[in-house]
Design a protein around this nucleic acid. Structure first.
Lengths: 154, 154
DNA sequence: TCCTTAATGAAAATGATTTTCATTAACAAT
DNA sequence: ATTGTTAATGAAAATCATTTTCATTAAGGA
């Protein structure tokens, strides 16, 4: 968690009159230490190991909150549940562009042409902003396909 | 439905031993005649007007089927339900790149820089194919933001 | 230490989607 | 055209992720 015992998100929370609680610390701890794209249930199970009394409801509530605050992003990969990622993750900084196998559901954070993608996306973002009078807050790029292993199982 | 009374999808279906049924005709009819991004329930309601005895279950089953066949695409726009689009729609041919207002949930099929996007996407697709040994079947590009009207309501 | 109220946990409710199963109807063979 | 096989259907029940309710707890300012 950044090595500091009073991280910057504390300030962020307190400003909004929100309290620093064990469940919140635990949830952010889990998200900070994973490279995966965890679902609410998975985050809950992970948190549960250290804080067995934290409930699934609380996990859902805080994930929603963290998303509204712009701290995490919520993704849909087609497996019927939402998955969450820290927007500025120490584990995988930068973009969140995904390659998903529709067979085994594995999710790959790819790096190919990301520079160019970002460049174009920025341009598109500006165009959309202007043309449709939107204030853009985020984007999603996903490629779907079948991985080598799954192709073997056909 | 294409002006022909024996459309090409009939052949497509029969080849797989699948039958041409009223519900299937009705569902494709609805998808063919909309520019919207309909949910299963919305498709069901639309079908229901003409064929009141077609059930919601059947709509779900056939949407899944049509997706597997590569005839329609399933999207998630963050409102908790899946939405479907004909991949080759007579109403909006070409791409399916979306701009979504997180306030009012409106979905815009935008046209800005789509040429360039497709060009880059094709390049990325090839790179991913090679680098990760994937057979790419589709992609998703979405921008999220707040539209002008919704910004007023804050 | 006390007080206010944000936050929590457990259980119930909700809502989209899937499964079950008995019935119907496509369509190939007759 | 009639029949037989079985894919497809519809209704109801089941499932599963997520949300709501509500009584209780605890963060943090006074």
């Amino acid at each position: 968690m950044n090595g500091k015992n009073n991280p910057e998100w504390h300030r962020n929370f307190r400003q909004r009159g929100m309290r620093i609680t064990e469940p919140r610390k635990a949830i952010l701890e889990v998200l900070n230490n994973t490279t995966e794209h965890l679902s609410a249930e998975e985050i809950y199970m992970s948190v549960h190991r250290t804080y067995p009394n934290v409930g699934l409801t609380t996990v859902y509530r805080n994930l929603e909150l963290l998303e509204e605050m712009g701290i995490i992003a919520k993704f849909h990969f087609g497996d019927g549940r939402s998955r969450y990622e820290l927007i500025h993750s120490p584990q995988k900084p930068g973009h969140h562009h995904h390659l998903i196998c529709t067979g085994c559901k594995q999710i790959i954070d790819y790096d190919d042409f990301v520079e160019e993608e970002i460049e174009l996306l920025t341009k598109v973002e500006q165009a959309l902003s202007a043309a449709h009078n939107f204030q853009i807050t985020g984007h999603t790029i996903q490629f779907y396909g079948i991985c080598h292993a799954c192709r073997g199982n056909l």
